[in-house]
Amino acid sequence: MNPKNTPLPSNPTNPIIEVRDFNFMYGSAQALYDISLDIGEKEVTALIGPSGCGKSTFLRCFNRMNDLIDNTRIPGGTIKISDVDIYHKDIDVIELRKHVGMVFQKSNPFPKSIYENIAYGLRIQGIKRKNEIDQVVEECLRGAALWDEVKDRLSDSALGMSGGQQQRLCIARALAVKPKIILMDEPCSALDPVATAKVEELIHVLKENYTIVIVTHNMQQAARLSDRTAFFYLGKLIEYGPNEQVFMNPENPKTEAYVSGRFG
């Protein structure tokens, strides 16, 4: 009855994800309160805020990863991706997750070869043709700016790679199932500055083709990487807007205090 929500102020004009009055509970503890925001297509959106503010929980709602946690529920609100309510009972979570990829905080390459890590997403879809898989593997590794580093050792174990390479491999792995949206949960928190720079560079390139939502603790990173930034505090969305607004000219004093490093 209300297919297109009224655009929110200071939100992107081409939203791919629309969140309205979203609430989320772990058992009896409420983690998110009445979140409403739009995420623009082929933009990088950063979620920032102090630990425990609900930004990771919010991120994991986009591909329903929270379904795996017992006793979670959504007392109210909707999330629409490309105009489809992803918490509707007719939604196939498997298809949703192919559409919305995820990269985790701790890089989690499977203990297989580099090649098999990328191929995994295809194999579980039943794709067996070798040249098709070969092609996707190369495509994804190039897409993740990893091809030149690993092309000679595709059959080596992924666990032998450096931390930064592992994380970029996880990004490449996510690309293999051709998602539209990539969620990143603090992808650089365990990486050194050089590896972080490489991942950031990669995110910058990926922006051309993918919508990226990234949770980060690092405000400089958010400022460098993203087009828009959402500031969460105690489960509430405090401020959301273009980077210039949130970092340079925040409306809310809490945002101002956080981005200037006075708490968090």
Binding site: L68, I94, A174
Partner: peptide, 22 residues
């Protein structure tokens, strides 16, 4: 590790696929 399961599920694997392969 949980990461093996989550990694597979996030790629669109069913629970049984993730258990069977990972």
């Amino acid at each position: 590790p949980r990461g093996f399961r989550e990694g597979a599920l996030a790629l669109g694997a069913t629970k049984w696929t993730s258990v069977r392969t990972n």
